[in-house]
């Protein structure tokens, strides 16, 4: 069903693109052919060009994450991902990239045949970009994770708690594709073409390091970061219903006030209430791995007011704070 919807959306996008640019400049066009490849027709400084571009988006991947304490360092967390390339994918999956608020090593875990690195996110001004890709050099460009296959062993360690974010994944498009010039002349058509090329990947939601954990531990800082993440990121991703957002936001404000007032019992009470709220939406919110998203929805008569992955991540973070507060008290 999801795939059918994607195809329909894709076709609509094609129609819209052709229609909109027919209006801007009749001759310039972006057409998606029957193979899902782009045909760009444009006017550049060397005259009119027609360029075929095979995108790296002919994949239908899934990402599962498991987060556990790093062995021997209970305060730090180990993020481990399993990436599956859907059976209906038409390309090998060759790369994945995510943004993390913190990583403990520039050399993240990677499976055999893959490489990975973490670098400062200089464009954002904070955090890190962590990327992995399958080494193809010297071999056929058609390599990597074949359709229907899965790979685990992709991972990183972080001191920060998870939030929900989009991760980018891309397939093995032919290397060496190129343009005969610098592209279309300046204008909306060029902007649209760049938007396609600059987003030559697909995205999936996953749990990634996002909520800063200060040292020494400060529950108020963590809860404030969590509150901000829910109100901004989760809301913009449309992962939470406004009515539930309001309830959770109020509960977090009360929990933060309890911390600032030194009232640990009240803090633990608020956390318990918040976790109960999440459990009402997703009964298996305490389950260890992320699982298929919203796969227990069938049992519910009403649609959950929060995405399952988002609920599990929030529950994990609240449980972590609870543990650290109790541990610190102990």
């Amino acid at each position: 069903m999801k795939n059918t919807r994607s195809v329909v959306q894709g076709l609509m996008l094609c129609v819209c693109l052709v229609a909109s640019f027919a209006a801007v400049a009749e001759e310039q066009s972006i057409v998606v052919d029957s193979n899902g490849d782009y045909v760009f027709t444009y006017e550049g400084y060397r005259g009119w060009q027609k360029v075929k571009w095979v995108p790296a988006t002919k994949i239908n991947p899934a990402v599962k994450g498991i987060i556990r304490p790093v062995t021997g360092k209970s305060d730090n967390l180990s993020y481990n991902y399993t990436v599956r390339n859907g059976k209906d994918s038409r390309q090998f999956l060759v790369g994945m990239r995510l943004s993390a608020s913190n990583v403990l090593s520039a050399d993240p875990r990677k499976p055999e045949g893959w490489v990975g690195h973490a670098t400062l996110d200089r464009a954002a001004g904070s955090g890190f970009i962590v990327g992995w890709f399958f080494r193809r050099s010297g071999g056929p460009w058609e390599a990597g994770l074949k359709p229907g296959a899965a790979v685990s062993g992709i991972g990183l360690d972080s001191k920060d708690l998870p939030g929900v974010d989009k991760v980018a994944l891309w397939g093995a498009s032919p290397s060496g594709q190129s343009f005969p010039d610098e592209g279309p002349n300046e204008g909306p058509f060029r902007d649209e073409l760049l938007r396609i090329l600059d987003n030559d990947f697909v995205t999936r939601l996953a749990a990634v390091p996002r909520i800063a954990v200060p040292s020494p531990f400060d529950a108020a800082v963590v809860l404030t970061g969590l509150q901000k993440h829910i109100k901004t990121d989760m809301t913009s991703l449309q992962l939470i219903d406004p009515t539930l957002l309001s309830l959770i936001d109020r509960g977090l404000s009360q929990a933060i006030a309890a911390v600032q007032g030194g009232n640990t019992p009240s803090l633990l009470h608020e956390i318990k209430n918040l976790r109960q709220l999440l459990k009402q939406e997703h009964a298996e919110v305490d389950k260890d791995d992320e699982g298929d998203r919203n796969d227990d929805d069938k049992e519910k008569q009403t649609k959950p007011r929060i995405d399952k992955l988002a609920a599990r991540v929030l529950n994990f973070d609240l449980k972590y704070v609870e543990k650290r507060v109790k541990g610190d008290k102990d």
Binding site: H117, I129, G131, W132, F133, F134, S175, G176, G183, L197
Partner: peptide, 17 residues
């Protein structure tokens, strides 16, 4: 192939000419 994947994995965008 690897150079292009490296660029993408670093969050860069690129235009092959």
């Amino acid at each position: 192939p690897d150079f292009q994947d490296l660029l993408t994995s670093l969050g860069m965008t690129w235009w092959p000419e």
